[in-house]
Design a binder for these strands. Structure first.
Lengths: 156, 156
DNA sequence: GACGCTAATGCCAACAGGTCGCAACTTCTT
DNA sequence: AAGAAGTTGCGACCTGTTGGCATTAGCGTC
């Protein structure tokens, strides 16, 4: 009698694959389900530590890997800095502001025209899901431009 | 009487900015001019070491930084792995194959339509110069797709 | 051509983000 | 209950890059 909780469904899937359900895994998954934003491995570990302070960060990394293989979570590289993980729901593309770090999600199909051009003109199949497109958000764009303008002036 | 060599022009620019022309800097710049492809800091250091084995990698990193401030070189992150550096010539966009690592350069204006959409619809100013767009080249695309298909099967 | 201010260097430690080997420990099957 | 095998924590390691610091070396000046 399968329950309908997302948590249990994932654990069931895990078991079917020959995996084992442990305290650590349950806790990590719970934290992931609770915080539906994009979390770094470090942030996720911190969340897990609130309840289980002795679960190690490598366990988190390893389980995130497993969950990705299961198709349950996905990771995104936001340019510099650590990758963030999130539940795999709909396929979306991430934009990240290089100045303030803000992440914007846009529909994956926004890239379809570019995808088509790259495919036909350059025989290149774009797969940008795991990488955010960098740029500047509304608030940061003006100051970023100003900074660029003075880059050639003496640095002192 | 200024010479017209690119090397000397850069060194001149450097001097104007209060910088000093040293053996290390001349060597790094020469290697950069000689190998006009995209080099990682490590590869560049290796090239420099052919002639000057005792120039340290941090010097290379520091000078690359300086050259970037001068607008002489530019760097690109090819996804995972080290960044590559190249002379700043025309503005182009990089595509990188996540499977074989091949880098394709395309005109920056290929992204203009996307740039326009992101700007008008999401108020986001795309600035992807320092990040390659990941995907799969012609040769790698089919096998990459096959791999993706078996990701949900038991991993062994 | 020596002087000296200061930038640049080499060395090495440290850093971030992540991976890995391994012995001890669980989980799940039988 | 027992045993095979998956999982864990720990700490070492890894890559790519940055930083401190004492030393060295440019280069404008005398």
């Amino acid at each position: 009698m399968p329950t309908s909780e997302p948590l249990d469904r994932v654990l069931e899937l895990l078991r079917l694959r020959g995996g084992r359900v442990t305290t650590a895994r349950r806790a990590i998954l719970q934290a992931l389900l609770l915080h539906r934003e994009h979390l770094t491995a470090e942030q996720l570990t911190a969340e897990v530590h609130v309840v289980h302070p002795d679960i190690s960060e490598s366990t988190v990394y390893r389980f995130l890997d497993d969950l990705e293989t299961l198709g349950v979570v996905d990771h995104v590289h936001l340019g510099h800095g650590p990758a963030v993980y999130h539940l795999f729901e709909d396929r979306h593309q991430h934009l990240v502001c290089e100045s303030c770090g803000q992440v914007v999600e846009i529909p994956a199909k926004t890239l379809d025209p570019l995808r088509a051009v790259l495919s036909s003109q350059f025989r290149f199949e774009l797969e940008a899901r795991h990488f955010a497109l960098p740029g500047y958000c509304e608030g940061c764009a003006p100051s970023a431009r100003a900074t660029a303008d003075v880059r050639l002036a003496p640095s002192d």
